[in-house]
């Protein structure tokens, strides 16, 4: 039987990029515990997924390698729902690059 602790709530909130107030943390600890207790009834089932391979040849269901300009957005459309833009790009608070040269 799993119970959800305050630490669990804090860890999961941080993984989910959510900021909780102390009141929310307390409320969610209680509510998530109740829900987890309920869903726990499947945790003890002795079954596993068979990962059925009924479909075969799914390559056929993929698309051709072609370009479709109709669905393309203009830079203005791409940026139409943001308030933080600069030089045609989305501006965010400084982060370290993961793939680019820093």
């Amino acid at each position: 039987m799993h119970t959800v602790t305050k630490n669990d709530v804090a860890r999961v909130a941080s993984l989910s990029k959510l900021t909780l107030t102390p009141a929310e943390t307390e409320l969610f600890e209680k509510q998530l515990s109740e829900i987890v207790t309920h869903i726990d009834k499947i945790a003890t089932l002795e079954i596993s997924s068979s990962q059925k391979h009924t479909e075969s040849g799914t390559l056929l269901k993929m698309r051709e390698d072609t370009i479709d300009e109709l669905n393309k957005l203009t830079p203005n459309e791409a940026l139409s729902n943001t308030n933080s833009k600069k030089s045609g790009m989305f501006e965010v608070k400084y982060v370290f690059s993961q793939t680019d040269e820093s």
């Binding site: 698309r63 390698d65 072609t66 370009i67 479709d68 669905n71 393309k72 957005l73 203009t74 830079p75 791409a78 940026l79 030089s87 045609g88 790009m89 989305f90």
Partner: peptide, 23 residues
């Protein structure tokens, strides 16, 4: 020619920023 999961062009090099996107 196109991207992995959409029909935007796979060539992005030196294009105007955010001119090669779709939903």
């Amino acid at each position: 020619e196109s991207k992995m999961f959409c029909r935007c062009s796979g060539r992005y090099f030196e294009k105007e920023p955010n001119s090669n996107t779709c939903p």
